[in-house]
Design a protein around this nucleic acid. Structure first.
Lengths: 339, 339
DNA sequence: CTCCAAAATACAACCGGTTGCAAAATACAA
DNA sequence: TTGTATTTTGCAACCGGTTGTATTTTGGAG
């Protein structure tokens, strides 16, 4: 029952190397022979054993998708799961499979991130990089396998790695600009710990400063930092400081999930959004459309990122990509009802 | 630079078979030698090549997670992505990696579902099975590799495959019972196309009938069928039939996403929930907590399913599992504000 | 009909591991 | 010291493919 290439060759009446070449569509095999063998293989339901093929060719036909693992949120975030779904699909078009893995978990001796390469389980990695360390990057570079970072933290060896960034400074700017345009002058910036959030805050700051130097009067601005990106964390933080928060008329929350926590907390306590306070989020996850009022937010181009990342890693694996792959995409303001 | 087991043996001053045994912790190797070799490997950053190991042992150390692919919703649903995240984590505890794949896509000549087995890329499959066909199951069984179905459609060869089911009949019953308990007597059941939804409708029906034979008066009940599980589809369907829908005082919607579509549509048109109409959903996705009013819904035990599925597939792969693996889990009513 | 170049096929080595079995090394008793 | 039982180690075959090169077959010209 167990079919291998030599048995197939016997059945086809040729040598196994001819079968191998026929299945790989080599020009060295006569057209008629090729077709005959391919049909026989089809008919018998034969498929190459990928372990063997991998061993011989060095190609695994698998790409690893690696994202940070949080013990607080042990499943993928809405953002990454969308991206993973799209990447899986895009990779399939190239005959590649997607293996998912995590990093940053404390209960694993070693990160999946280098293990997958060392074990040669994958041809390349797409890494959701906002939490990779310099050391991890360095050891990855030392291994020499293709990898591509999505939104690495701003300090990581930017010029040295293939990467796709989103211009979060611009995103923060757009958010600030939107609040100010809505006539808001007492602004609260709700941020989270992590370098990627600082960049957004900087953009936000720039929007404020630009306006202040203009005709408008001074703008009041304060910051609240959350420990993580959970709904409950945001909700509780606002609830605890409700009086203080009520003093503001515009809030920029640096992730949609937290935004919805803020939004719900305000609504639950009788604060009207957007009449009393405008709220603007960040990410444009699917659920931002479904809140009432629907959330005005900064859209991250997930689909484009997934598409670009896939094309990038594919060309790196096939070797078409020699020079540095580095793209920057722009977020977009999505105007809904909360501003 | 490229390290293999023979080079490592040279460096260690032993034969390569001893190295292989040492790394696999075989009792045939002296403790001191074993330790010496392991330390050397560690120090040199050596990892076995998994393609080679797979070829020799027949173990891929990869499990495929396969879910239905919808062109309408090309990324994973909230439900599957949660499950995938948890399974990935649980599999990692056993040293297994997770490969994600889809089935039912029209743009692939063959489904990933049997390809992965044929190519021997995975040791086993966990299949989100509500849309697998009999033929697919049959050809999978013919291949002889371990696979486990999660929530297969009720008609599929239930007794023949390893599987985990959720008692959706009970789920539907709980939903109906809850609406009736809230005093609702004119009930609308919003369902979707697909066999798994019929079972929920049957449970709902049972709740209605049980009550009718009791002391309570007759209960009016009608059905609305949606073409798919998108938010917009549900929203539009309600909007188109707003007048008709207003005649009901209780709505059971068979997925949370659709529920939220229904809920938003009602709220947007000035219908008060739960005062005028009670709404109950199904799934208990994360976002059900964040709607206002928060959605009363039927909780699917995703975490338990993921845990069980992982343990099941692992024991099947290691061969510990000989008899049929078949579990049924019970959904739970989660009472929030929409009833 | 013969010869030779070009096309098609077959052989063998290799990819990097695992493992059964034979050989060598060690331990212990006589 | 020798013999034997027990560990420990090493050789060689194998897993199922790919691919360089030698060999055979084919076709066309002379």
């Amino acid at each position: 029952m167990d079919l291998n290439i030599r048995k197939l060759a016997q059945l086809a009446g040729t040598s196994y190397s001819t079968v191998s070449r026929a299945l790989n569509d080599s020009p060295l095999v006569k057209e008629t022979t090729k077709r005959r063998i391919q049909e026989l293989a089809q008919q018998l339901g034969y498929h190459v054993d990928f372990s063997a093929k991998s061993l011989a060719t060095g190609m695994r036909m698998i790409v690893g998708l690696v994202y940070p693992f949080h013990s607080l949120r042990p499943y993928e975030s809405v953002y990454t799961s969308q991206a993973i779904g799209r990447m899986r699909h895009a990779l399939a078009q190239h005959g590649l499979d997607a293996l998912v893995a995590g990093y940053g978990s404390s209960d694993r001796a070693e990160d999946d991130i280098t293990r997958l390469i060392r074990q040669k389980k994958v041809d390349g990695l797409i890494i959701f990089g906002y939490e990779v360390s310099e050391e991890q990057i360095e050891s990855l570079r030392a291994l020499g396998s293709p990898f591509l970072l999505i939104n690495p933290s701003p300090t990581t060896a930017a010029e040295l790695c293939h990467q796709i960034r989103i211009d979060h400074e611009l995103g923060g700017y757009l958010a600030g600009e939107r609040l100010i345009r809505a006539g808001r002058r007492r602004l609260l910036s709700v941020t989270e710990v992590g370098q990627q959030f600082q960049v957004r805050a900087q953009g936000f700051q720039r929007a404020v400063e630009e306006t202040e130097t203009g005709a408008t009067g001074p703008i009041h601005r304060e910051t609240l930092t959350l420990q993580n990106g959970l709904f409950a964390t945001a909700y509780d933080a606002i609830a605890r400081n409700l009086k203080w928060v009520s003093g503001f008329d515009g809030v920029f929350v640096q992730s949609d999930i937290s935004s919805i926590g803020v939004l719900n907390c305000l609504l639950d306590h009788g604060v009207s959004v957007p009449r009393d306070i405008s709220v603007i989020g960040y990410d444009d996850i699917e659920w931002a459309q479904y809140t009432r009022p629907a959330l005005t937010t900064i859209h991250q181009p997930v689909q484009e990122v997934a598409q670009l990342a896939t094309e990038g890693i594919v060309s790196m694996i096939t070797g078409d990509q020699s020079e540095l792959f580095a793209k920057q995409l722009q977020p977009i303001l999505v105007d809904r009802e909360s501003c």
